[in-house]
Amino acid sequence: MLIGPFVNGAAIIIGGLAGASAGRILPERVRTALPLTFGLCSVGLGIKLVIEVKYMPAVVLAMVIGAVLGELFYVEKGIGKVAGLTRGIVNRFLPPVTGLTHEEFTEKFVAILVLFCASGTGIFGAMHEGMTGDPSILYIKTILDLFTSAIFAAMLGYAVLTIAIPQIITQILLAMLAVFILPITTPEMMADFSCAGGLIMIATGLRICNIKLFPVANMLPGLLLVMPFSYLWASLVA
């Protein structure tokens, strides 16, 4: 029985409730500084994952084609619409957060949705539990997400709680697929997959810090392509 995804989702709900409740009493400078700090940490972790790459050309090719597919299918635009609907529904029942325009809210919400649901730790942790039954990696992510959700809920409000739903679904699906995926992966493929995730985390961190608004959601198809491309590169080129 899977445990990690549900524990991880519960941490987002608990942290989100605490952050959204405390956000109204936190000074503006604190609510501004905390996401910037976390954005910087996201960039740092992303750089660490990128360094582990084995076949960088395969990763670049997967990310470029994935970004093209994301743009053609309007992945980020679709997620943005869902984010707007989510905000409207949540604000009907819980106190809304003022001070953010719809565009600002959508930009931040999409970035943290990708950060929670597509991080390397979450993806590998879910696959690891599905394959071995050991949820320890997701427990580590749970501790991080508890504080992360509180930080962003202080800025975006109770809508952050809803991120628990797609994260739980994503992790359960990955855990179920792991039985078929992990046996055919190699360390090189995992390293390149981590690199792709690291690039997305760097883009997410820069977006959170308002340095560059990368369309991070449109980059997600690259994660689906990087392992096959890494395998083909190792077989045909390397």
Rank of each mutant, 00 (worst) to 15 (best):
F38V: 08
G39K: 00
G39W: 03
L40Q: 09
L40M: 14
L40C: 12
C41M: 15
C41Q: 06
S42A: 15
S42E: 14
G44Y: 05
G44L: 15
G46V: 04
G46E: 08
K48E: 02
L49R: 05
I51S: 08
E52N: 10
K54Q: 15
M56D: 05
A58D: 05
A58T: 07
V59D: 01
V60S: 03
V60T: 06
L61F: 09
A62W: 00
I65T: 11
I65A: 12
G66A: 05
A67W: 12
A67C: 11
V68G: 00
L69W: 02
L69N: 07
E71H: 11
L72K: 14
L72A: 13
L72E: 11
Y74S: 15
Y74N: 12
V75H: 00
E76G: 01
K77G: 07
K77P: 02
G78S: 03
G78M: 01
I79N: 00
G80T: 02
K81A: 08
V82I: 12
V82N: 01
A83P: 06
A83G: 12
G84S: 14
G84P: 08
G84Y: 09
G84A: 13
L85P: 03
L85C: 13
T86M: 14
T86P: 07
G88S: 15
I89L: 15
V90S: 06
F93I: 13
F93V: 14
P95I: 07
